[in-house]
């Protein structure tokens, strides 16, 4: 069942740089897709267009039945409630505990503290940080920080989890653990996952669908397990 559909999408920045050129792709509900490519190939622009951080210059980007390209600015926040985003640099609030960082995402939406508590505890448990709920970010390792970031992204039970280089700052062992957490979310919660990465090792090992972007053009769409890193990136 189609969940994301890009049709003839172009994105040219005001500087004249074309980041995405005539891209068309369909991603089904519950899929796990890697987006790979060299630095500045257009991966981030592709990902940002999904949560309307960037608007396509041409074409349509449909996410969960909503054409994001035509979405009015005042309605963008509704789309984002259905999407969780995980960043390379975690973006945790240093003065809040693990629990508070995760709860923050729900508090912003005006959800009552009664509803917040069980949801936050569940999200923290999924990422395996139950014991560290009261710790502050500076007391956590890089991997743990990324787990908090993932917990915050999934606490609102989004339909889509977008990960922008989530293992970029982590060592290989920690990266493996993080990938396991994300894979479990995809399998157990049936959340569609789209992940931009540079990490060939992860892509090879996970055997998921891979989208290869080169100079803004989608040059390869490899189905589960058919991608090998020597073929491109």
């Amino acid at each position: 069942m189609k969940f994301i559909e890009l049709k003839n999408v172009n994105k040219t920045y005001s500087t004249g740089v074309t980041a995405i050129a005539d891209m068309s792709v369909v991603i089904d509900k519950g899929e796990f897709v890697f987006v790979i490519g060299h630095t500045a190939c257009g991966k981030s622009t592709f990902i940002k267009m999904l949560y309307r951080e960037e608007k396509p210059t041409k074409g349509s980007v449909v996410v969960g039945g909503v054409n994001v390209a035509k979405l009015r600015n005042g309605r963008v926040y509704k789309l984002r409630r259905k999407i969780g985003v995980v960043f390379q640099d975690f973006k945790l609030l240093p003065k809040l505990t693990v629990y508070e960082n995760v709860a923050f995402a729900l508090e912003c939406l005006g959800i009552s503290s009664k509803e917040i508590k069980p949801k936050v505890l569940k999200a923290i448990e999924i990422v395996g940080l139950k014991e560290k709920a009261r710790s502050f970010p500076h007391q956590l390792s890089g991997g743990e920080k990324q787990r908090v970031c993932i917990a915050r992204a999934i606490v609102n039970e989004p339909k889509l989890l977008i990960c922008d280089e989530p293992t970029g700052n982590l060592d290989p062992d920690t990266s493996k653990e993080i990938m396991k957490v994300i894979d479990n979310i995809n399998k157990d919660l049936k959340t569609t996952v789209i992940m931009a990465t540079h990490d060939k090792e992860i892509v090879n090992r996970m055997k998921k669908r891979v989208l290869l972007i080169e100079h803004g053009v989608l040059t390869g769409d490899y189905l589960k397990g058919s991608y090998k890193s020597h073929e491109g990136v």
């Binding site: 949560y51 926040y77 984002r80 259905k82 609030l93 995402a105 912003c108 939406l109 915050r152």
Partner: peptide
């Protein structure tokens, strides 16, 4: 940025 990305409306931010 976090408030924006989790879906807070501009007014709420």
């Amino acid at each position: 940025e976090i408030m924006r990305l989790v879906g807070s409306s501009n007014t709420a931010i």
